[in-house]
């Protein structure tokens, strides 16, 4: 009997299932990832045991530890309408109306915290210039003297996102109403937060979401 010769071949593993899996995961992560623009302001949020998640369609007002106020709103279309309103009504403070290009740039911009006087400059700035502006700014003015600019942003933004919600609700009844979130630094003075909440209340907003990060409940 001749010896049975074992075939010599390199051990080749069928990698197909692994590749399939890898690409499945890649696709999943690609589709679920949402790139955020870099945060304009760094805020250390306090802890809580709350389990309620931050809803979608939210306007976020950030307050950093030194009490500077930043404004951010979801929704590109509503942002365009908002900046157009502001540009029409406050062109004197802005130093002239904003161009169409500025309006488009604003619509994809993240949170900002500059008064009207610097808004045009901020919109037209590039990334590194914005960083310096963010570091230097005193935030959106919240005092009624000379002018409470946050109240304008909040009032117009709220009205626009409300009417946007009514329009969309006709098609999609599960759409949730716009919400207001306050993302304040733990070391911020409560007085400032209270002032911001007061301004929002005057604009007719009744519910607020205080953004916190999760802490495990101790038993």
């Amino acid at each position: 009997m001749p010896k049975v010769k074992l075939p010599r071949s390199s051990p080749s593993i069928d990698m197909t299932p692994m590749v399939d899996l890898a690409f499945l995961l890649v696709t999943f992560f690609m589709l679920t990832t949402k790139f955020r623009p870099e945060e304009a302001v760094s805020v250390t949020i306090p802890f809580s045991v709350s389990q309620t998640k931050l809803p979608d369609n939210v306007t976020t007002i950030s307050i950093d530890s030194s009490g500077r106020v930043f404004y951010d709103m979801d929704g590109k279309d509503t942002r365009i309408q908002l900046i157009q309103k502001i540009s029409d009504n406050y062109s004197a403070q802005l130093g002239g109306k904003l161009s169409d290009q500025d309006i488009m740039r604003f619509s994809v911009m993240g949170a900002f915290g500059v008064p009207y006087a610097q808004l045009k400059q901020y919109i037209e700035a590039n990334e590194s210039e914005r960083k310096t502006l963010n570091a230097q700014t005193k935030g959106i003015p919240i005092d009624s003297l000379p002018h409470d600019e946050l109240a304008d942003w909040v009032q117009y933004g709220y009205n626009l996102s409300l009417s946007d919600w009514y329009d969309k609700k006709a098609k999609n009844p599960e759409m949730l109403p716009p919400r207001f979130a306050v993302k304040a630094d733990g070391n911020a003075k409560y007085e400032v937060v209270k002032k911001v909440i007061d301004i929002c209340q005057k604009a007719g907003i009744q519910h607020f979401d205080l953004i916190t990060s999760m802490k495990m409940k101790k038993n």
Partner: peptide
């Protein structure tokens, strides 16, 4: 291809944030 696949996978895994921040709801009285 596998190398590329896993490279992309790692990148997206690291950049994705699943957990949305939690909120405390506050309804101040009128």
């Amino acid at each position: 291809m596998v190398d590329l696949g896993f490279l992309l996978l790692t990148f997206f895994m690291l950049t994705t944030t699943f957990s949305k921040p939690k909120v405390i709801e506050l309804t101040p009285p009128v």
